[in-house]
Simulated scan of single mutants.
Amino acid sequence: MACGGDYRQWPFLTTEEFELVCAFFDRKYVKAELGPTRKIFKIRLRRTLTTGSSYIEILRLLQLPEEKDDLSLAFEKLNSDLDGPGVDVDMLTAAEDADQVRGSFQSLKTTLRPQLQNQHGGAMDSGALPRYSLHSDQPYVTYEVHLHPTYNMPTLWFTLHDLPMGEPTFNLESVYRYLVPPGYKSRLRAAGFTGGISAAPHPVTDVPAFFIHPCQTKEAMESFDCTMANYLMIWLGLVGGCVGLWIPPEMAAEEA
Rank of each mutant, 00 (worst) to 15 (best):
G122I: 05
A123S: 08
D125K: 13
S126N: 14
G127R: 15
A128I: 10
L129I: 09
P130T: 10
P130E: 13
P130S: 11
Y132A: 08
Y132H: 07
S133M: 07
L134V: 11
H135D: 09
H135F: 12
H135G: 02
H135I: 06
D137Y: 03
Q138V: 15
Q138T: 15
P139D: 07
Y140K: 10
Y140P: 02
V141G: 05
V141T: 07
Y143E: 02
Y143D: 02
Y143Q: 03
V145W: 04
V145R: 02
V145D: 05
L147P: 08
H148Y: 00
H148S: 04
H148Q: 00
Y151H: 12
N152F: 13
N152R: 13
M153D: 02
T155N: 13
T155F: 02
W157N: 04
L160W: 01
L160N: 00
L160S: 01
H161M: 04
D162G: 01
D162Q: 13
L163R: 10
P164C: 08
E167R: 09
E167V: 10
P168S: 10
F170D: 11
F170T: 04
N171I: 00
E173R: 13
E173L: 09
V175Q: 03
Y176M: 09
R177E: 14
L179Y: 03
L179I: 05
V180P: 03
P181G: 01
Y184H: 14
Y184F: 14
Y184S: 08
Y184E: 12
L188A: 05
R189S: 07
A191H: 05
G192I: 08
G192V: 08
G192A: 06
T194I: 12
T194F: 12
G196W: 06
I197D: 03
I197W: 05
S198V: 01
A200S: 14
P201I: 12
P201A: 12
H202G: 05
H202Q: 06
V204I: 10
V204H: 08
T205D: 15
V207A: 15
P208Q: 11
P208M: 12
